[in-house]
């Protein structure tokens, strides 16, 4: 029997596969496809203090091996999430939930963090300081080490659950940001968010996305994400959730060998809603082929 279960800050996951924020809503849409209780965990749609419509459409552009989105944190706001979305989810979902939150000021982040971390079914708060689609063209809390540390410390002070900080790849030195966030009290890290990108419609000579820029995700970014997880693993002691283009059991294993304690699957679920299930189903055999009995033994194995 191969052991797939991993732990993130004392939260036990039955397997290391987490559905990534922004690609899984609040879980409702996937119930039509399969029982989402087979997931290791999932990270809900990025939630803000106030409801947000997000950016104008088109919000989606395709590219080789991936997609670019400029959704811009559309969500119904924390009141509606607390009152409607999460109770509906908890009625049928018993696995750990990562509550992904975002904001536009330190006050918004802390208010959101305090409120959502108090909810029973929330296991981990995932602090998104790296959305590339807001803050006017790519600037975010995650782009500056001092800024990232300040918002982390402020949230940590009010957070009733382990606090994981989701980092942006759109920085010169991600290890430096990771260290700053660790020093500010983060219990773990999620990396990477999407890479700032764009496409142009050659007929209209205009950017495809109404927002001009968006975040690139999908298999195209997997090697970049892998490299960053590898670098950050060397720089910090706290656990890392690796994400960015993960699409197969092999990708999960590679990401964990780079240093991830668990892995998130994002864009893959948009083209194949069964992606997480297929990866989880394929993991035991893939591990067995490699002679691995306990998935924990491969975390950071490439170092």
């Amino acid at each position: 029997m191969i052991n797939l279960s991993v732990t993130l800050s004392n939260v036990r996951l039955q397997n290391p596969v987490i559905a990534a924020s922004g690609c899984f809503g609040y879980g409702e849409e996937f119930r039509d496809f399969y029982d989402i209780n087979l997931l290791g965990a999932f990270s809900c749609k990025g939630t803000t203090l106030h409801p947000r419509f997000g950016n104008p459409t088109p919000r989606i552009a395709e590219t080789n091996g991936g997609m670019i989105n400029s959704v811009g944190l559309q969500n119904p706001g924390i009141e509606a999430v607390t009152a409607t979305e999460l109770p509906r989810l908890f009625a049928h979902y018993q696995q750990p939930l990562l509550a992904n939150i975002s904001g536009f000021s330190r006050e918004e982040y802390t208010a959101c963090c305090e409120q959502i971390s108090a909810i029973d079914g929330v296991s981990i708060v995932e602090l998104n300081i790296s959305c590339p689609n807001v803050h006017g063209g790519g600037m975010s809390f995650g782009a500056d080490a001092a800024c990232a540390a300040a918002v982390t410390a402020a949230c940590k002070a009010v957070c009733k659950k382990p606090l994981y900080v989701k980092l942006s790849p759109n920085v010169t030195n991600i290890a430096e940001i990771a260290k700053a966030v660790e020093a500010a009290g983060a219990d773990g890290l999620s990396l990477i968010n999407t890479l700032l990108a764009m496409r142009i419609n050659t007929k209209t000579r205009k950017p495809i996305l109404a927002n001009t820029f968006g975040g690139l995700s999908g298999p195209a970014i997997f090697p970049v994400a892998l490299r960053m997880v590898y670098q950050v693993y060397d720089a910090v002691k706290i656990p890392i959730i690796g994400l960015g283009g993960v699409s197969s059991a092999g990708d999960v294993i590679e990401m964990m060998m780079a240093g991830a304690s668990a892995v998130q699957v994002g864009a893959a679920t948009l083209t194949d809603p069964f992606a997480c299930k297929k990866i989880i189903d394929a993991l035991p055999e893939t591990l067995q082929t490699l002679g691995i009995e306990d998935i924990n033994e491969i975390i950071g194995a490439a170092h």
Partner: peptide
């Protein structure tokens, strides 16, 4: 008609007011 990401309501790519 809209440009869509997933087609089943998960990605919020085709929202309208």
């Amino acid at each position: 008609e809209r440009r869509m990401g997933c087609g089943f309501g998960a990605c919020m790519g085709c929202s309208c007011e």
